[in-house]
């Protein structure tokens, strides 16, 4: 009974999708409409189409247009101002032979993998705990989600202070009398990424928890009843039944978190500004900014941002395929 309205919406969505996505083909199959042809189809739902025009234009001009413009100019030798003087792949060759860019990529991979694993697993765990029909759930949920309301700059500064050896955790513990205590991740090139990770997790986990909680709440109560009747242990139900059922939520979370990691910038700027050791915590977005504006070399910055776009696409395309393409089992 709980699932009824949901199913109906799903069906509606599917019908809608078939109509919109399968446009030209559905026209062939639909009765009677074949002959009357295009004009009528264009006029159908006219209000909705007119209302969508600004959105379509914005997408085409701002997003798609801006992206294409950037990619095109990444093949030029634009300096402070863009100009069309082609240099082929020179910018890319320079980019990939630059040690700072390579370090940035390595840092991002390291940070990204750990960040993905921990935000999603910790977020899910918190959601499960929250789902145990506890008292004051609203309060806890608010507390957990609160860091997400802060900007990354604020998070970065707060954690820079917390991790600062003089004023932060190390200083406090030493103040208690444990003189040899040492906790200074941000000033050591070996550990600085963990320092960033702590701040990133603090900020992002609550949000993932909310997504997961929404997913858990979407699971039909009957599933739980069935599992209980069969005498399956709760943890096992979660792992074997619930998690697979939450596949769409996991994939969405993965995409949101991964896109956020690739554009990581402000947290690093606020916490370490790329140091210590000059580049121990550099990330690609910082390279893009520095070369576009400080070095006044737009071409190089565009090449780097095109590489970032590529990595976002590498994340997005499998997702789009999973979400929209591989519906055979559905």
């Amino acid at each position: 009974m709980g699932g009824d309205p949901e199913n109906r919406t799903l069906k509606l969505l599917k019908v809608g999708a078939a109509r919109d996505l399968g446009g030209p083909f559905s026209a062939l199959y639909s009765r009677g409409e074949r002959m009357s042809g295009q004009p009528k189809r264009l006029l159908r739902n006219l209000n909705a189409k007119i209302a969508a025009i600004p959105m379509v234009l914005t997408t085409l001009v701002v997003f798609v247009g801006g992206t294409i413009w950037t990619v095109v100019y990444s093949f030029t030798d634009s300096k402070l101002l863009p100009r069309l003087r082609w240099v082929g792949f020179d910018q890319y060759e320079r980019l990939w032979s630059n040690s700072r860019w390579m370090v940035s990529i390595e840092n991002l991979m390291f940070f990204g993998v750990l960040s993905l694993v921990f935000t999603i697993s910790v977020g899910f765990l918190l959601a499960v705990l929250m789902d145990q029909k506890i008292r004051y759930e609203d309060t806890f949920r608010t507390i957990m989600l609160y860091p997400f309301a802060l900007s990354f700059i604020v998070t970065g500064l707060v954690w820079q202070w917390i991790l600062n050896p003089q004023f932060g955790i190390e200083g406090i513990v030493r103040g208690w009398g444990w003189e040899s205590f040492s906790f200074d991740p941000l000033n050591n090139p070996q550990t600085v990424l963990y320092g960033l990770l702590i701040a990133g997790l603090w900020q992002g986990t609550g949000f993932v928890m909310c997504l997961m909680l929404a997913g858990l709440r979407g699971i039909d109560e009957d599933i739980w009843k069935a599992a209980r009747v069969d005498g399956i242990a709760t943890w096992k139900t979660y792992l074997v039944v619930i998690v697979p059922m939450m596949r769409p939520v996991f994939i969405t979370t993965l995409v949101i978190v991964a896109a956020g990691i690739i554009k990581l910038y402000d947290l690093v700027v606020a916490q370490t500004s790329g140091g210590p050791g000059g580049n121990a915590s550099q990330v690609p977005a910082m390279y893009v900014y520095d070369y576009m504006f400080q070095a006044q070399n737009l071409g190089q910055g565009f090449a780097a941002s095109t590489m970032m776009l590529l990595s976002v696409l590498i994340v997005l395309i499998p997702w789009a395929y999973l979400e929209f393409g591989g519906k055979k089992h559905g």
Partner: peptide
């Protein structure tokens, strides 16, 4: 030198001095 060269030299120097 152009800002581009200066910036690249800065990147190199900070890495060199701090590693």
């Amino acid at each position: 030198w152009s800002p581009d060269v200066v910036k690249q030299a800065e990147d190199l120097m900070v890495e060199f001095w701090k590693s």
